[in-house]
């Protein structure tokens, strides 16, 4: 296959990725059965009583009252919410998933909370370990394969 033809194919793949991204975003809300952070940010009161499922970054923890303050990312900026019924251990900077009910005054009554990152440092761990994974792939790949500048592509060493 000629390099120009392969380049055309790669451009086509790029366009397909863009197309999928547009299709996905256009259909996201239809396939997400809960009010999103954007929907709550736009008209919070109309969603009071609805079930919701949100992802947020922990800002403050009140262990006595089993509540945490979270920020949910929305298209209009972060939305602050207070989540009640949080028994799990989590630190400010951590990340949680909250499945529960929208209550007045930016409160959520959690039925289930999953602590994704117990603290901000969990993110450092994930990125650090991922970097090791990326380096491992690159090193192992280039031990067996090389870039052929004449054929403009990877070939076996």
């Amino acid at each position: 296959m000629r390099p120009s033809l392969r380049l055309f194919g790669i451009v086509l793949v790029g366009l397909l990725v863009l197309g999928m991204g547009v299709h996905y975003d256009a259909n996201y809300e239809t396939n997400w059965p809960y009010p999103t952070g954007d929907a709550l940010e736009t008209d919070y009161e109309s969603h009071v009583g609805d079930r919701t499922f949100l992802f947020g970054t922990v800002q403050a923890v009140d262990r006595e009252n089993a509540t945490v303050e979270i920020l949910v990312e929305t298209g209009r900026g972060p939305l602050p919410l207070t989540v009640g019924g949080v028994e799990q251990s989590v630190e400010p900077g951590g990340a949680v998933q909250v499945y529960g009910t929208v209550e007045p005054d930016h409160h959520l009554a959690a039925d289930r909370v999953v602590v994704v990152n117990p603290a901000g440092s969990s993110l450092v761990f994930k990125y650090g370990v991922s970097l090791v994974g990326a380096l491992l792939v690159v090193v192992l790949f280039f031990r067996r394969w090389r870039f052929d500048t004449d054929g403009l592509g990877f070939e076996v060493r």
């Binding site: 392969r6 790669i10 793949v13 990725v17 052929d148 990877f154 070939e155």
Partner: peptide
């Protein structure tokens, strides 16, 4: 869907055994 499409693009970066 993304894996299938991106894998197709990466495959075109190889000169053999695609």
């Amino acid at each position: 869907g993304g894996v299938l499409v991106v894998a197709g693009g990466l495959t075109l970066c190889f000169t053999e055994s695609r």
